[in-house]
Amino acid sequence: MEARKADIVFGFVLIASAGVLWWQSYRIALRFAGRFMPFYYTPGFVPLLLTSLLIVLGVVLIVLRRDAFKGSWVPRTRIRDVLLARGLWAVLLIGGYVMLLPRLHFLAATAAFLFLSTMVFHRRHVLAAALVTIVTTLSAYLVFARIFIISLP
């Protein structure tokens, strides 16, 4: 997507999310204001101020890019290109690793992640990938868990 159009999309997302947080902050401020303390001393006051500023900045961003409303809004990138993008694979692999960690032991999850990543991004022989995986996983475990005595996931 063109950068100026992307700014408009981001502006709307920002206004919507800041709006939700603004409402939450307003409710907190109302809960305390008057009865216990002045409005400006309530826990909701500063978040209310900040989310209001974010909404204003979101509007400014959209207004500055208003000329980008013209023209086609159909993305030029094809779905096939997105699916083949290495960035997407990186996100999926890191996300999968993070999700796998509480379900498997650290060693198993790390080994699986390293093996798959090496196969996807380095594209070498299975044996080479396995060797890299074993050496790295065991080194990480020994250095952090045994030498630095750091708790691992």
Binding site: F113, L114, S117, F121, H122, V132, T136, T137, F144, S151
Partner: peptide
């Protein structure tokens, strides 16, 4: 980079958890 970055990812996870 394909070898290095996955190792860095593991370090990130350890750092965040520690």
């Amino acid at each position: 980079v394909g070898l290095l970055m996955p190792v860095i990812t593991v370090l990130c996870v350890i750092g965040a958890f520690a």
